[in-house]
Structure formats: structure tokens, C-alpha cells
Design a protein around this nucleic acid. Structure first.
Lengths: 356, 356
DNA sequence: CCGGCGTACTGTATCGATACAGAAGGGTTC
DNA sequence: GAACCCTTCTGTATCGATACAGTACGCCGG
């Protein structure tokens, strides 16, 4: 039988309230009595108020829920996710709040149980597949939410910290078009969910995964404006957002007649894989084949990768701040952050044109 | 005023217990009534039992606490930590349990508050500095604990999943000694806590940080046995366990008269930094200077790093299993896992001897 | 017609704390 | 000496659920 406030109260012949005050409101009792309470607590093996009971009474648990999809290694492995979580953890930590990492199982019923049982003050959704059934339950929980992707996923009540994915991608597309490339491939994660890595024929307006959809549409915007027919663009699905899949996807663009001279990707990690594929084939990035990424992860700079720089850590930090110190002004709970195009060595003029 | 079980009960004229059963024990009521309860819940905006109240009553919160030191980026950035956390998350997730990442602030008082407020069923300590004041509070909480480093830190009641750090390091030391090296430097993290990167004069028997202490002592064991006087070994402190500090530390061993021909490190990450430092100076790893790591992180293999392979993911997974499904047999709650020496290209014979 | 049993639901105690109104006691002020 | 205040503590209501014993009732066998 573990000691509770009452145990200590009985031991000293004071009220339970007083013992509670000793821990939570030291100004409400004399220092002398407080010291005696702590001494008795120590003696009886009481280590302070039960966090669960306290949370119930206070209506606050000091935790933010972070949902991870079934592939949870990504949360720790993907450099963008790592940066985002770091920002979030910083904001939370500054407010004495912890992060509850919730792994969302594939099984919907189990997913609902896990979400229902999560004692949190708020949820931060930063890359949950939009189609997962547990999302609706999260909204029903009625706790504050910040999302990091589709600004419309949860309606205007949810906070939002994101970037203009589409126009950012468009800038990459324009850069490639300006360099004269006409044989272009796009390597994108989750064009089709649950699919394999390889070329797909998909309508950019009908992609389910928001981020990929917007980025692909942004690429198309640029190409269409540059007069490059969309039908000529090779769309390649990557089954996972990692380096290996990036390399595997690139193979489909490189080992064919009419090899692509430019490969755009939806993330730096995929782009690094594409570069691996080039290296294996003895192709020079930026000369034989141009490659672009997205995110500007730390590895992008030493690699010379042309990419979009986005404030990943900042996105996480701001999400945390919006959840824990919600700004009065609703407009300040929905932020679109600026990005910039970083041109490095992996992009260059279309070699086919140079010759002519 | 949010809806509770009582709201639903009143609406339908049934008892609160019955509504509770609808959610938690479907076999206790007729399917028909259960459906009506869910319908009413939907209508009144009730999203299921409050997790905090449920946790209080059940005495279980379905969460494992993971403490991170103030430098929390490490938890996401350090490859060993990432692997460990992944294993832990897998074990937890399989049991519908979440991970509560608790950032331990530098300020001891705030640290105690955060630990006290953490609603968890168990704690997993995998790299908390041994000297942090909040540790004692964790033990006082009386919840199950598994530690991943110093097996004696919490007494025999705590679970333990680790490796024999000292004998593992000894094998690296023997390997280096066998190759004939006599000018040896050791780059180690946290030889002195809060210190700067650079040579230090420290007694291996008096190091506070357990892992570093054991590994350094293991190196010494090997050297002493090989007849290499410990006084000749250059000990270099790395202020952080990252690549940059590894490179900075290596500079102290390379830019001096009587340059080291072998540099042992306490982690692969540091070793990668040492290799960076060699590259900058045009020195060939395994030829001009031998380098060893520790952990066998994914990057070690392509780099050709000689290191100790340890089961990082497995350590996390087993820790989670011990916490969530404690084996009856106490011996099975304290595991020392095997490691192996992986010799690759970064170690080779002492070039000074070859010449003669 | 009675005992026994299974199903469906109810009622109360309880988990371990905090909030808040109130009371006791001593000291000031006019 | 009455009115008032401050400090220090007390007592009760409450947070939102679950556990468990108990009740009501229909059904079956004998």
C-alpha cells in the first residue's frame, strides 16, 4: 500500500489539504510545518503527489501528443522529422511539458484505443497520413491541435504551421525549366499509398497525400508555364521516404532510352539516393543529370544539393508555442513560413542543349 | 462544459456504470443498449472515457517515461540513441503503450518538478548523466525502472540491459596493441563533465560518467597487459558526443610532435569526426593512423570503421519488454548482451614499425 | 412451485489529488 | 472593546472514471 497525501496527514495530525499545499502552494503554510511534512514524507516513502490524480484534478497533464505512423523509425531517422521534433521538444521543454510519442498501429481499432488512452493537453500532427481513421477521433477529443501539413485537414480551429508547398516546388521547377531541361523525372514519396517503387501514371490533382500532391502540382505549374508538356514528365513513386528508395526510383529514370536530364524529388533524402544512383552509373550530378531535393537538411550543404530551404526546427518550435501559449489573434495561430531556393552544384544546364 | 459518462447516462436514463461498460466491457450489456449509448455519445459530443480519469482509477497510464538530458537534440541525432529508442518504441507499441519523452532541464528544481509530474508506468534510463539530482526522485517514485548503462546505479531491483563495456573496450585495445601501436590517443566523451574539448589528465578509476569510465578502463586493461605504459597514452576529452567534437579532439592528437598512430574513441560518431580530421590533413586511415569506434552504427560499415558491434535496437526492445512484461525470474531482468569486434579498414599495423 | 443459474443492469465506494470557502487565533487600529 | 485584517490551517466538494457486490428478472429442470 503506497503512501498518499492522507497517510502523511494522518501521521502528523494535519489535514490532507495542508499536505497538498506543502507541495503545491508553499506560501499557504508555515515553513516549519512544511519542513515537518517533508520529513514525514521522506520517512514514509512518499515521493510527492501522484501525477495522474493531480492531472485529473487540475485538468492538465503537461504533455503534448505526437502521432507517429506505423513506420516509427522514420520519426527518429528522417532528418526533417528529427529537426521538427527537436523544435517541438524545445518549445515543450521550456514550458515544463513532455512529449508523448504515440505510435499509431495499422490496425484501426487498436489505433483508436491508443489515441483514446493518450493523456495529453494537445496534439501535434506533423506527418500522419491524411487518410488514417484515427484522425477523426483526435478531433473529437476536443483538445487543441496543430497540424504541419494540409492547412485544411482539420478546419480553421486547428493551428497550422507550414509552408506554401506548391509555390516552393514551383520555384524548383522553374529553376530546372530555366536550365533548359525537357526530359524530366519526378521522384515522389507516397504518390500511391502502399504501392511499390516505380513509374506510375497518376493525376496530380488526385493525390491523397497532401505534401506530395502539392509539391508535384507545384512542379507541374512551372513546367506548364514553361511550355513543357506534362505528358513528357516521368512520375516515379517511392515506397518510402529514404535514401535507398530514392536510389531505386532513380534507376527507373536513368536506365531507359531517353534518359532524364533532370530528376526532381520531394525530399532531400530521396535526392541523396538519386545521387547515389548517379554515382553508381558514373554520371556527374549537375552536369550529366541535374537533381533537386526539398527541405535543406544538414547533409544537403556538403553534398552540394540544390534544394528548397525550409525552417524545419522553427516549424516544430512554433507548433509547440501555439499549442502551449496560444496567441489571442487567431491569425497568429495559422502560420505560413517563408522558404528559399538554394542553388548548389547538383543542378546545371541541360547537357543535350549545350552540345547543339 | 464537456460531456462525461454521467451526461450520457442521464440522457438515456441508465447508470453511469453501464455507459462505462459500453466502452470498456462490451460483454456486460446488450448490443442494442450499447449502440444507443454510442449514438447518444456521438450526439452529445462525447468522445470516450477521459484518459486521465481512467488512468487514475485503473492505476495504469500506458506510457513509459524516457529521460533526455538537457541536450535533447542528441536523442534524435545520435545514431546509437536513435536505434535504442526505436527498439524501445517497438516494444512499447506492441503493447499499446506510448513513450513519454521527458526533457530534464539543467535546473535541478525544475527537473524534479518535471519528473514528479510525469504520469508513467515505468522509467527507462538510457543515458542520463549519473550525477543528475533527479535520479534519486525517480527511484523514490517506486515505479519499475530499467537502466541501460551502469548496472549498479539503481541497485538490484532495477532492470538492466547492457553490455560488458569494459571487456568490449579491452578487445579494441588488444586489437590496436596487436597491431604494434605504441603512440596511442583516446578520444572520449565526458571524461570531465562540462569541460572543453582537449587533452586532460584524468585517473581512469575516477571518471564519473559510467560508460566512458568503463571503456577507458577497458582500453587501459589491454595496454597494460601488452606492456604499453599508460602514461604514454594521450587522453582527450570531447565536450559532446558528435562528429565535430570528434574532429576537434583528433586535432590535439594529430597536430603535435610524436603524432599518435592510433586513435581510439568511445563512439562511432566521434570516430567519424576523427576520420574527418585525418582527411583534412591528407592522412590515410588504417595506414598512417588507425582509428576505432564503438557501437557499429549504420554509417560504420560503408566507412570501413573498425568498431565494436553492439545490439542497439535490441537493447531498447528488451528494456521495453522487461518493463512491460517483467519476467518472473529476476535474473532475466538483468541482461548483459554479447558484442563483437568488427575489424574493417580503419585499423592497420603501426607504420612506424613497418619501416624499420 | 421452488431452487438454481445466467444475463443485464444498478449503486456505492474508491482511485489520489486540488480548489475554495470558511474558521481559529493573534495582532492592529481607532 | 468592537471592527477588521492577516496568517495558518481545515473541511467539503469535485475532477471523471472503474471495480465489485448486489438486484431484478426470465428461464429451465424437477
Amino acid at each position: 500500500m503506497a503512501a498518499t497525501l492522507q497517510t502523511i496527514a494522518d501521521e502528523l495530525g494535519v489535514s490532507r489539504s495542508t499536505v497538498s499545499n506543502a507541495y503545491s502552494r508553499p506560501d499557504q503554510l508555515s515553513p516549519d510545518l512544511r519542513a515537518r511534512i517533508f520529513e514525514a514524507a521522506e520517512r514514509l516513502g512518499y515521493s510527492g503527489p501522484n501525477p495522474t490524480a493531480r492531472s485529473l484534478r487540475r485538468g492538465k497533464v503537461n504533455a503534448i501528443g505526437v502521432l507517429l505512423t506505423d513506420d516509427l523509425s522514420m520519426a527518429f531517422t528522417d532528418p526533417y522529422a528529427v529537426a521538427y521534433l527537436r523544435g517541438l521538444a524545445e518549445a515543450a521543454s521550456a514550458r515544463e511539458t513532455s512529449l508523448l510519442l504515440i505510435n499509431l498501429p495499422k490496425d484501426t481499432e487498436a489505433g483508436r484505443r491508443v489515441v483514446s488512452n493518450a493523456a495529453v493537453d494537445a496534439f501535434c500532427l506533423y506527418c500522419v497520413p491524411d487518410w488514417h481513421g484515427a484522425l477523426e477521433l483526435i478531433r473529437a477529443r476536443g483538445v487543441p491541435i496543430v497540424i504541419g501539413e494540409d492547412p485544411n485537414a482539420f478546419g480553421p480551429d486547428a493551428g497550422y504551421v507550414g509552408i506554401d508547398e506548391r509555390s516552393a516546388a514551383r520555384r524548383l521547377g522553374e529553376h530546372i525549366a530555366d536550365l533548359g531541361h525537357t526530359d524530366v523525372a519526378i521522384v515522389a514519396h507516397w504518390i500511391v499509398h502502399g504501392g511499390v517503387t516505380g513509374p506510375v501514371d497518376a493525376d496530380p490533382d488526385a493525390l491523397r497525400y497532401y505534401v506530395t500532391g502539392e509539391r508535384v502540382r507545384g512542379f507541374r505549374d512551372a513546367f506548364v508555364e514553361a511550355g513543357l508538356p506534362w505528358e513528357r514528365v516521368l512520375l516515379i513513386n517511392a515506397a518510402a521516404n529514404d535514401r535507398e528508395e530514392g536510389a531505386a526510383a532513380a534507376a527507373h529514370a536513368l536506365d531507359r532510352l531517353g534518359r532524364a536530364t533532370a530528376i526532381l524529388t520531394t525530399s532531400d533524402v530521396l535526392a541523396l539516393g538519386v545521387l547515389d544512383a548517379l554515382r553508381v552509373r558514373g554520371l556527374r550530378p549537375g552536369r550529366d543529370v541535374s537533381v533537386t531535393g526539398f527541405d535543406d537538411i544538414p547533409e544537403a550543404e556538403p553534398t552540394g544539393l540544390t534544394t528548397i530551404r525550409q525552417p524545419s526546427v522553427e516549424r516544430g518550435r512554433l507548433a509547440g508555442e501555439i499549442l502551449l501559449d496560444p496567441p489571442e489573434d487567431p491569425a497568429r495561430r495559422r502560420l505560413t513560413l517563408p522558404v528559399s531556393l538554394v542553388v548548389r552544384a547538383t543542378t546545371g544546364p541541360n547537357p543535350a542543349k549545350e552540345k547543339s
